[in-house]
Nucleic acid binder design. Structure first.
Lengths: 230, 230
DNA sequence: AGGCGCTTGTGAAGACGTGCACAAATCGCG
DNA sequence: CGCGATTTGTGCACGTCTTCACAAGCGCCT
């Protein structure tokens, strides 16, 4: 499940604040989900809760980390050291949560040789050598959209089977390769949609009209995390 | 729907390459979704396709931009000008897709006054004034997790009703405020899970064992975008 | 003008995720 | 040792999303 990492983060918080055990209700609140959903998710991992008590925080952390494959520190190659790539290279959230940026790569010779956070940017042509040396299985694409597909092909060619794509485009990859996409502008556009919806609803509570002037209020909205209470 | 921005991006690509019309199949490929799903999504906006021909690219762009509320250029306040905030401030994908970063804010006096991409970083205490001047409805939080909730409260207090949160924590906001969360490390962890699953399956195609050593292959996996063909 | 091929729009069926509500199980205390 | 409070694990029902399949509609060509 895609919620496991969120649980893991909440569990680490709890562990740091000295909690030995946690109830499904407590963990669900910390992770921002329903308690029944959380219990159902955790039951998929096998039973690790004690009825009447709750879950052992440490044990649950180990278990989730095992399932997520975080027992080994995975090496990641980051391609594209532009604006966003720079930030990603310096983002300590990766290192603190089980990942090691093993290589920074870029196609621009201007950027090759630059040192970021203790790592030197190498040319993308070095990818085959680097991938072999570091046994890289995960690649991050932070290039412009025009270069993303080419980079993806190169990553796949050297054995990368998981790609995190920040470029605003759809990647074609062979079967067996996983792609996750993060598009920062899309996130904002989704918020903009909600803004527009809210504005329409308050301005014209009961509006009809032609299709062209129809308000978007009728669209189904699956909000991500609304009104978590206080 | 959350897929509309993706369609919009694909449509802009098509428009730039000179396409006047596009079939649902073509647009679905460009956006990486099923054609039936795309047609159903577009039918929610009202009928804008011509049977036997397809959709008018320009018309569809206008329609989607209207529904997403992109007819006005929305002002965004970015709080937290650290590593990630820096990159976001310089990310031109925002400007090119209907958003204007109207203010950069940070609580660190060291960073106040710094100029990024033509904008000067202001202190977070300036938020009420800035929000009033720029009529800001969307806030982006790129602070450490410890500061995120406090910033969210401040944003809500000045009338922000949509928040994009990059901090790895759950935010509590009043009803009516939308929060979207992007956690870069979580994306990697999800990929790691897939890596682990793939490794387990290839190494031990039919494994049993106790719960502790059980393989995660049994977990339901809803892949985001796997095997889009060539 | 008529037919043919192509594409949209949609009804229906199925898969999936979600949440409730309750039985089973465990601990602590008298 | 037994009882009650508490919490997990899960069967069931519901709503949503997805996909297939096909009728309806449109343009083009003859």
């Amino acid at each position: 499940m895609a919620r496991l990492p969120e649980y893991l983060r909440a569990l680490h918080n709890l562990a740091e604040t000295g909690h030995e055990t946690v109830s499904s209700e407590g963990l669900a609140n910390a992770a921002g989900v329903n308690s029944a959903k959380l219990r159902k998710d955790l039951s998929q991992l096998g039973s690790y809760g004690t009825r009447g008590v709750g879950y052992d925080v440490g044990l649950l952390i180990d278990q989730i980390e095992y399932v997520l494959g975080l027992t080994q520190r995975r090496a990641v190659a980051l391609v594209g050291v532009g604006n966003l790539g720079h930030a990603l290279a310096g983002y300590d959230g990766f290192a603190s949560r089980g990942f090691r940026i093993a290589a920074l790569l870029d196609a621009d010779q201007e950027r090759v040789g630059e040192e970021i956070n203790g790592l030197v940017v190498q040319h993308i042509d070095e990818l085959p050598r680097v991938a072999a040396e570091e046994s890289i299985a995960i690649g991050v694409i932070a290039t412009p959209a025009a270069a993303a597909q080419r980079v993806a092909d190169q990553l796949v060619a050297v054995g990368v089977t998981s790609i995190l794509n920040f470029a605003p485009c759809v990647l074609s990859v062979p079967e067996g390769v996983d792609v996750r996409k993060v598009d920062l502008a899309i996130e904002l556009q989704i918020l903009s949609f909600h803004e527009h919806r809210k504005a329409s609803l308050t301005a014209l509570p009961a509006a009809g009209g032609s299709a062209l002037t129809a308000l978007p209020g009728g669209l189904a909205v699956t909000e991500s995390q609304e009104a978590i209470g206080t």
